[in-house]
Design a protein around this nucleic acid. Structure first.
Lengths: 345, 345
DNA sequence: GCCGGTTGCTAAATCGGATTAGCACCGTTA
DNA sequence: TAACGGTGCTAATCCGATTTAGCAACCGGC
């Protein structure tokens, strides 16, 4: 910058003013402004962000801390959304994984604060209640896919799972289903849900609500120890041994995949014999035959939204206002494909 | 830091010396060292890395630039490996996506250099030849899953695809297969491979080499426009319409999934009627039935290795030595599962 | 012709440390 | 006892910007 100032024949102060866009504000003449700009261009000058960060305290950098990023391809979309939001604002993204370990989490948050990030997105790869680490309260932060175990003064961004449950139920009702509707992955009682799987609880809530309104009774439900194909398969096999369902609401696509396998074993066709709706919109959903009708987890939008809200918080903090702790629900889009049909007469 | 110095009753210089671990070197007495350390502890002092970065030029930060991170869950593992390597060295990771666009790439690299990263990992999500951007040569850098289109003075880290091809062929030979071995995803001629799919070329090279050594002839091969289940399905259907294969080498797991569907349509059983080997070890491979024998893409190791090599480069650069442009091949582990059996008599 | 107000620019301090040169003190040695 | 080499610590400078306070020149009004 000193070089630029010299080449333009002005003081470093003036150069700084021009290059940080405050020329107008501090009454620098157009002529001088142009000279500085041109000198900067000729010298291919770029501001040293580290230095700016030291002086102004803003590093144009945010942190993305999550439990794990590799578990599902969808998680990648969350980062992608965040990345895009960050890029639009000219901000870079630090990422880190806690692996669910408290000391890693502590160290990571510390490391980010040491680098003076402007804000932190604290994310989980599937929606769940978590303890909000104290180190998070040190600066602007938002919760992504995390609902705080005890009330925290932080905004959170989560998918609208209840509405997704409603949508799934409506799809079956609209197709004419009234009986033989089973849930795979939870139930039969509302409390029978894998621990910490908030999504499960909320999806079932939405399902039950819509069915109840329509005067339709859920025929049954089966928990799965984990939401993987093999357990979906087992649960569906058990179900089929006992009775003949007309429609399955699988709590995610991997369970649905297992259910497909079980239905296939019993020579039952989807959707002619049994309709299947599911959640997540995993890539798998378009690979299996028939393609799966599913309510998508909007990971990309979640990531983007998190950045938007984080910058709101940063802005508000700069104005001295408090952070706010509202919870933003991101709608889950319905993907109608080929796995639902009217019940066979 | 000034506070620490004051509390310890020494000059800021001394405090700096002690806290940067150079006390011994510059002959600070043990007593003073202890006083400073204790003061720092009491004040919960943490060095401001931004400031250190300004003065020393090292930010304890590296950049991970890739074309896209979300395409496959496996890509996430690559980042995970890099993350772990970085964490062990107390370094943070910036990530960014280029989406394959040159101007985004340019901007991203620029943004990283502006933030004075200590080094950059330039990655692609599947192995392929790419133009190495000039901005990469500005500092320490390594290529991950990228082979430079023209020779560049940068080390590269890539999976050992040729050896993986050999392994796949050996699995079939060991099971007793001699004829009716088809490739799905490439061939029949060695040049029939999707453009830019370096993995395909190398896998086929390895396959042909081992088969040739054993005096076995490849019965045929079919290209797929893209390595997705639907194309694997189509190619296999075409093949089955013409003849009855004894073993399929699918060029990735998604193709294999499509092949399974086609075999199922023809009432052929895996592995009794047809054996299937594949590549990648996508999560899918354990979800389908029978579980798929596949040669795994070692994404996690690739990510880790990239960080290791990058720090080698950084180290060497500090000593004034050149970067080196060797290519590191990471072995691809074989995952024996249930999709291969001896040919039916 | 003097005064107050603009306009246009700059000197100097600051951010939080790292680095360099050197100072005061002490025991040795000739 | 004066020169000498260690020892233990610090003052001053620097990294690359931003920011505050202020200075000179000019202008119009009385």
């Amino acid at each position: 910058m000193a070089d630029v100032a010299r080449q333009a024949g002005v003081s470093p102060t003036t150069a700084s003013l021009v290059l940080s866009g405050r020329a107008r504000e501090l009454r620098i003449s157009q002529a001088v402004e142009q000279r500085v700009l041109q000198a900067a261009e000729e010298l291919e000058y770029r501001r040293n962000i580290v230095s700016v960060g030291l002086r102004t305290g803003t590093t144009r950098t945010i942190g993305f801390v999550s439990d794990t990023v590799a578990t599902t391809r969808l998680a990648g979309d969350m980062i992608k959304g965040a990345l895009e939001g960050a890029r639009e604002r000219g901000v870079m993204l630090f990422i880190g994984e806690t692996e669910g370990e408290a000391d890693l989490e502590q160290g990571l948050l510390q490391a980010m604060h040491d680098r003076r990030v402007d804000g932190i997105i604290f994310a989980a790869m599937f929606t769940r209640p978590m303890k909000v680490p104290a180190a998070l309260l040190g600066g602007p932060a938002v919760l992504l896919n995390v609902v705080p175990k005890r009330p925290a003064a932080l905004p959170s961004i989560v998918p609208d799972e209840v509405e997704a449950g409603r949508a799934a139920a409506r799809i079956l009702l609209d197709a004419g289903h009234r009986e033989g509707i089973h849930v795979i992955g939870a139930g039969p009682r509302p409390s029978d849900v894998p621990p910490d799987a908030l999504a499960g609880v909320e999806r079932v809530t939405g399902i039950r609500e819509v069915l109840a309104e329509a005067g339709v009774k859920l025929a049954g439900g089966r928990v799965c120890p984990d939401w993987l194909p093999e357990y979906g398969y087992e649960a569906t096999m058990e179900l089929l041994a006992a009775e003949r369902p007309r429609a399955l609401i699988c709590l995610n696509d991997r369970i649905a995949f297992g259910a497909y396998q079980a239905l296939d074993d019993h020579a039952l066709e989807v959707p002619a014999d049994v309709s299947v709706v599911s959640f997540d919109d995993h890539p798998l959903a378009t690979w299996i035959r028939p393609k799966l009708t599913t309510i998508a987890l909007p990971f990309y939008e979640l990531g983007r939204k998190a950045v938007d809200v984080l910058f709101d918080v940063i802005e508000r903090q700069r104005e001295g206002k408090p952070a706010g702790d509202e919870s933003h629900r991101v709608p889950m889009p319905v993907r109608i494909r080929e796995s639902v049909a009217p019940p066979r007469a």
